[in-house]
C-alpha cells in the first residue's frame, strides 16, 4: 500500500441465497474525501454500507480502515474505531427527547455505556449534546420528544447522533430521502460545514444533491461497481445517466 487510505474495500461480496446483492466491489476512499455512491434501487448500496458498518458479515472480501483490517470487528468495535452511520429509514429513539437521543450517541461513542449511579443530567459530558444540536440546527428542539419531530428534523437528529465524538468515517444512507426542497438545501449546507478531516460516504438517490456535495462518485448497478469519476464526468456520461434514471431496467 502506497499511502494510507481512509477506507479500502477489496472484493467485497454479499450473497443472499442465489442473489448477489454486492458483487466483488473494490473501493478506495482518501482521508477527508466526500464520496457519493449512486445507483438505482436494489443496486446494493445499503448492503455495502451494512458490511462496512458491521451490521452484516460479508460473504467475501475485506474492509480496511486507515490501514487496519476491520472485516471481523463487531459493529460496536467499529464505532470505537470511528465508523458511524445513519439508516435509509429514520431511526431515532421516539420515546426520548432530542437531548437524550444525542446523549445516547455521545455515550455510545465514548463510554462508559453502563453507568448507573449518576443521572444523565449530572454527567460531565452532557453539554456535548448542545454542540451537536447546534451543528444540525436543533437547538430549540432539545426538549422535544423525537417522535414529535417532523421528518426533516428527525433526519437532522440522525445526522447529529452520527456526529457525536467526531467520527473518522461517516456513512449516510440517503440522508435527503423525503426532505422538502428547502430542507435539502440546508442539508447540503450542513454537509458542507462538516469538518474537512472527516471522511464522508453518501448514498443518494437525488443526483443533484450528490453531485453538489461530493468530490468523487462511485456508481453501482446490480451489485457491481459500474463506474467511478468526478461529479462532472458522471453527469456527462449518458450511459450512467440512463441506468441511473432506470431506463435500462433493474
Amino acid at each position: 500500500m502506497t499511502k494510507e487510505e481512509a477506507l479500502v474495500v477489496e472484493g467485497l461480496t454479499r450473497r443472499f441465497g442465489a442473489l448477489v446483492a454486492v458483487d466483488d466491489v473494490t473501493l478506495r476512499v482518501a482521508p477527508g474525501e466526500r464520496r457519493a455512491v449512486l445507483g438505482a434501487n436494489g443496486a446494493g448500496k445499503t448492503t455495502l454500507f451494512n458490511m462496512i458498518a458491521g451490521d452484516l458479515p460479508p460473504s467475501a472480501g475485506s474492509i480496511r480502515l486507515f490501514g487496519e483490517d476491520i472485516t471481523g470487528l463487531s459493529p460496536q468495535r467499529r464505532v470505537l474505531e470511528g465508523v458511524r452511520r445513519t439508516y435509509q429509514k429514520s431511526l431515532v429513539f421516539g420515546g426520548m427527547t432530542v437531548r437524550d437521543n444525542l446523549y445516547v450517541a455521545v455515550r455510545g461513542a465514548t463510554g462508559p455505556r453502563l453507568a448507573i449511579w449518576t443521572r444523565a443530567e449530572h454527567q460531565p459530558d452532557r453539554h456535548e449534546t448542545d454542540t451537536l444540536a447546534d451543528r444540525v440546527g436543533l437547538t430549540d428542539r432539545l426538549d422535544t420528544l423525537a417522535s414529535e419531530l417532523s421528518h426533516g428534523e428527525q433526519r437532522q437528529l440522525e445526522l447529529g447522533m452520527a456526529l457525536a465524538h467526531p467520527p473518522k468515517l461517516l456513512l449516510l444512507d440517503e440522508p435527503a430521502a423525503g426532505l422538502s426542497t428547502r430542507e435539502r438545501e440546508s442539508l447540503v449546507a450542513m454537509l458542507a460545514d462538516l469538518p474537512r478531516d472527516l471522511t464522508l460516504i453518501l448514498i443518494e438517490h437525488d443526483l443533484d444533491i450528490a453531485l453538489k456535495a461530493v468530490d468523487y462518485v462511485s456508481v453501482m448497478h446490480n451489485g457491481r461497481l459500474l463506474a467511478e469519476g468526478t461529479p462532472a464526468e458522471i453527469s456527462a456520461n449518458q450511459d450512467i445517466q440512463d441506468i441511473y434514471m432506470g431506463r435500462h431496467g433493474k
Partner: peptide, 13 residues
C-alpha cells in the same frame, strides 16, 4: 426499546 438497530450503530451491545 425504541430502535435496537440504531443503538447498536451507536456503539452499544
Amino acid at each position: 426499546r425504541d430502535e435496537p438497530d440504531r443503538l447498536r450503530a451507536l456503539g452499544f451491545n
